[in-house]
């Protein structure tokens, strides 16, 4: 609370605007009630397990397998989104074609569509007798209820991230930079590889990290398509739910804290990336 009191003094000295005390009060109270206290409950419950208990639960074979599949599928999905998201952003910014605005809006569908809805649609589509599952089955590939299905769900939910981080940077990119490269004798390919992509790099990495972080925590769309076989297609969030249903609160909390640590590291990485980009471009 020293933060708040100190702030009130500093805030009021500077401004003639009213309501600082009131709005900061509401903000802190609401933030504490909804976010801070419950998060603290989680961390303290996990701390009850102790450090050894955390290690033990993290190195359990089933847990390890679930981390492997979660991170593996998330990495693949984020990579696919990186490649196609960049192309999509490029087309949306640089090309003029009928339906461009429609496509631009459509890219946000995974943000707006409830995950459970996406989950059942993707499962139906990729199940053995589904429209696309049939084709894959013809090649002897099982998609739904197997690891590729998880990756597909994660591609879906992470799709907008790369597009939406790269698009504004691409829009702001001065066309003169590419013209300069062209007058200096660079081919189009050289210009893209040596001038455009390096300029986009921070945005590309940020989009990738955001898509990855989102994929790691995803639950709704994956549980339908995954098949959820322990050790094979069981993701970490599902394992948390399973532990909770078995009233293993401490185990669930320990896993949750591990996941939080991962998101925290991702968040830090994204922040550092953005700081790096700002510093390099000097604005």
């Amino acid at each position: 609370m020293t933060l708040a009191l100190d702030s009130v003094r500093r805030g009021q000295r500077a401004k003639v605007l009213p309501g600082f005390r009131l709005t900061l009060g509401i903000t802190l109270a609401w933030l504490s009630a909804i976010v801070l206290v419950p998060m603290f409950a989680l961390v303290s419950r996990a701390a009850g397990v102790g450090f050894d208990g955390m290690i033990a639960s993290a190195t359990d074979a089933r847990v390890l397998a679930s981390f492997r599949i979660t991170f593996g599928a998330s990495l693949i999905a984020a990579t696919i989104n990186l490649v196609f998201g960049t192309m999509l952003a490029w087309a949306l910014v640089r090309w003029r074609f009928p339906g461009r605005r429609l496509l631009d809006g459509f890219v946000d569908l995974p943000f707006a569509l409830p995950t459970a809805v996406a989950g059942i649609a993707l499962t139906t589509l990729w199940a053995k007798r589904g429209m696309l599952g049939q084709i894959a089955d013809g090649y002897g590939l099982q998609i739904a209820f197997a690891p590729p299905g998880i990756a597909i769900a994660l591609v879906f939910i992470g799709l907008p991230f790369v597009v939406r981080t790269v698009q504004p940077v691409l829009e702001e990119l001065e066309p003169e930079i590419e013209e300069a490269a062209a007058t200096l004798g660079a081919s189009r390919l050289q210009t893209i590889a040596r001038v455009v992509l390096p300029e986009l790099l921070p945005a590309l990495l940020t989009g990738f990290a955001l898509a990855f972080a989102r994929a790691v925590g995803e639950y709704g769309s994956v549980i339908f398509i995954a098949g959820n076989r322990p050790g094979q297609t069981e993701i970490v969030p599902l394992l948390i739910v399973t532990k909770l249903e078995q009233y293993d609160y401490a185990g669930a909390a320990a896993l949750a804290v591990l996941m939080l640590l991962v998101s925290f590291v991702m968040l830090l990485a994204i922040n550092l990336l953005q700081r790096w980009a700002k510093k390099r471009h000097g604005n």
Partner: peptide, 20 residues
């Protein structure tokens, strides 16, 4: 071609490559 023209062009806002 643009490459063979050997035109030295200086842009109004320089268009330097910021990452180099």
């Amino acid at each position: 071609s643009l490459r063979d023209r050997r035109v030295g062009f200086v842009f109004q806002h320089y268009a330097l490559f910021r990452h180099m």
